[in-house]
Amino acid sequence: MTSATTRLRPDVVVRIENLSKSFDGRLVLDGVGLTVRHKKIVAIIGQSGGGKTTLLRCLNLLERPDHGLLEVAGETIFSGDEVRCHDLAKLRQSVGMVFQRFNLFPHLTAVENVMLAQLRAGIPEQDALERAVQLLRRVGLAHRGVAYPEQMSGGEQQRVAIARALALRPKVLLFDEPTSSLDPESTAEVLRVMRELADDGMTMVLVTHELPFAREVADWVVFVDGGRIVEEGEPAEVLGKPRELRTRTFLASYAAGQ
């Protein structure tokens, strides 16, 4: 990666300015700006199709923005309309991601899934194994190390995915609707692990429909609609006393569906 601009404050892990992205002529992100500080949890909420997941995927260049500025962990990774990061593997060590659908390798056991990225990063096999076992223990799955994904519940698979995302000690961890495909019991298991990560001071950006969890855990809530940030602030403000009509309408719709 190229060296970062000196404007980035030491406690800022992610800075986004005027970020835009289109798909087939449809504007999905429209001039988005956001700052994520060290050891803070930012929850992104909003209706499906509003641009939340695209914003998350731009942060590790799984999607290439059309225009704007992205800085992660002190490095400029995208500026203007050009990618400035020439080592995507290194970027994705700094920016871990947990996907909605787990994305585990079906032919690998839990411990092998957690080891794989470490081995590709050049970490010795024994060290990778020890860290994988440690992380599986951290997410409550020490007893499932030799299980394959098809032998695990959805909640167990998602916890393995969290362990895998932590394996390379990322600066920030991204979660894309991590509980949307889980039953209530599995959801509770995953949210417990995420709560523990928050207590440990992990910097996190999460797209979520779990508004009570966002209210409890997040330091900052961002409401995205139509590719724009409509409102942002502390959870008590955005979720309890929203200023914008669009935010109030969304929250009322959410409450009616519960």
Results as ranks from 00 to 15, higher is better:
S3N: 12
T6V: 05
R7I: 06
L8A: 12
L8Y: 02
V14E: 04
V14P: 08
E17K: 13
S20N: 13
F23L: 15
G25W: 05
G33I: 11
L34R: 14
K39I: 02
I41N: 01
I41P: 00
V42H: 09
G46R: 01
Q47V: 06
Q47A: 15
S48L: 11
K52P: 00
T54L: 09
L55P: 01
R57M: 14
L59E: 07
L59S: 08
N60S: 06
P65I: 01
G68C: 06
A73I: 12
E75V: 13
V83F: 03
H86L: 15
H86P: 03
L88D: 08
K90R: 10
S94W: 09
V95W: 02
G96N: 04
Q100K: 10
F102S: 02
V111G: 03
N113W: 00
N113C: 00
N113A: 00
V114T: 03
V114A: 05
M115I: 08
Q118I: 05
R120M: 13
P124W: 00
E125M: 13
Q126P: 00
D127W: 02
L129H: 07
R137P: 00
R138N: 11
R138L: 12
V139D: 00
G140W: 01
L141F: 07
L141H: 04
A142G: 15
G145C: 12
G145P: 00
V146Q: 14
Y148R: 08
P149M: 09
E150M: 06
Q151E: 04
S153Q: 00
Q157G: 01
Q157S: 03
Q158G: 09
Q158D: 06
A161L: 04
A163V: 01
L166P: 02
L174R: 10
E177N: 09
S180I: 09
S181R: 10
P184A: 07
P184K: 11
P184C: 09
E185N: 11
S186E: 03
A188P: 13
E189H: 12
M194N: 02
L197W: 02
L197P: 15
G201A: 12
M202R: 07
M202N: 05
M204I: 09
M204E: 09
V205P: 04
T208L: 07
E210W: 02
E210H: 08
V221D: 13
R228C: 02
E232H: 12
E232G: 07
G233V: 09
A236G: 11
A236M: 11
E237I: 14
P242A: 01
P242S: 01
R246S: 10
F250L: 11
F250Q: 14
L251P: 09
A252N: 15
Y254T: 03
A255T: 08
G257K: 13
